Computed example of a mutant assay.
Amino acid sequence: MIRKFVILICGIVLLTCFFSCAMAELTGERITQALSDKEITVPVVCDQPYALCDTAYCVPAQDDPSKVLCSCYMVDGPSLGGNNCSVLAPIGMYVNEYGDWMIKAGYPVGQITSTYSFYHAAPIEGNEIDPNNTSPDYSGDIYLKQCMNGDWADCWNKPCSVLPQDIHADINTDRLASEYAVCNCGLVVNSSEWFIGVYGTEQCEDETLCNDYIISGANVKSMDPGIVILKRYLQENPDPNQQYTMGYCEGCVGCDDESSDEPVEETPDEGVNETSDESVPI
């Protein structure tokens, strides 16, 4: 965690200086309600580079108290966005034949959008995207942790900037990009309930994590349509890094509460009456 904060702070400082001197499938009534809510953006699946802020730690933006800056991973593959894929496509960036992230010649920084995926979701029984084709070597360890009464960062569909590894390199050449994107996310304050992505069971059991830091999150109730959409896409277009849908800490192996280990059954009469807000995936 300390390393991640160091990377985040260094990235934000460099970026500022550079510019001034970036679950189980649920269906039924709950999905129908979310899709009928005109304030909810129904996600689309794009198979292209994106920033993933599902476990991102954030710091306040100095020039805007309603914003936070979050350090996010860069991933290439299928993800959920809230716009058409051409709008979400990276600008001035690409992945070369060796798998390296590059910033194109002529661009001072790369630009990328924060979307959402099941990248490295923990392997919870019942959350397999394809139960007949999961790998024994899969090592995902990210769970969804419930948080209450506090603030969090809304990074979905937000713009992100990526510095070159060498900020002094010739701008007229293609340059290696930094490992992380710095995303300009919204600050959600005084929220009664939200969810964050955490690594492993130890963070699942951390009772103060949600309120000790500003972390990228979401209201999961409104994620349901996107989770269904992405799972169906991945069933037809397998991704080795997304073999499971995101599961909750309550179902994790070794956690105190084992009551949610049973998979959620798909039923058209689920009848959940909670309403969704406008925030979609983390």
Rank of each mutant, 00 (worst) to 15 (best):
F5V: 07
Q62T: 12
I31L: 14
R30T: 02
T275Y: 12
T208F: 11
S71H: 10
E266L: 15
F195Q: 12
A56W: 07
T41C: 00
N157T: 07
D100L: 08
D141H: 13
I124Y: 14
I227T: 13
N133K: 11
P60Y: 11
G197R: 04
N184P: 01
C58G: 04
L144R: 15
P49N: 03
Q235T: 04
F18R: 09
V59M: 13
D261R: 15
V13Q: 12
I142G: 00
T275F: 07
N149Y: 13
E202T: 12
M23K: 15
Y233M: 00
Y213T: 03
V6F: 14
N132W: 14
E274Y: 01
L209D: 03
D224F: 11
L234W: 04
A89E: 09
S79H: 15
Y180D: 04
P268K: 10
T201A: 13
A56L: 06
Q235G: 09
D256L: 13
I227V: 13
D277Y: 07
L80D: 00
I7W: 09
L209P: 02
P131R: 10
P60S: 07
N273G: 06
V6P: 01
T134L: 04
D212T: 10
P65L: 05
L230F: 01
L15C: 06
R175E: 07
I229G: 01
P78K: 02
E265W: 10
T267H: 11
Q33D: 11
H168L: 14
A218R: 01
T245C: 03
C210P: 02
T275M: 09
I129L: 04
T275I: 10
V109C: 12
D174R: 09
S117D: 15
G271M: 08
C183T: 07
D37Y: 02
E270K: 04
A177P: 05
N127D: 12
E202L: 09
P123V: 06
S86K: 15
Y57Q: 08
D76G: 01
E265R: 11
Q111G: 12
M148S: 14
V109S: 06
F118Q: 01
A61I: 00
I142D: 00
P159K: 13
L209H: 05
Y213G: 01
L187V: 04
A105I: 05
C183S: 08
W101Y: 15
P43K: 01
E265L: 12
A22I: 12
K67T: 06
L144C: 05
D239A: 07
S86D: 15
V45A: 03
C72I: 09
Q203D: 12
S117R: 00
I112V: 10
C255N: 13
G200R: 10
V182Y: 14
E128T: 06
L14F: 08
T267L: 11
E29N: 06
S135K: 05
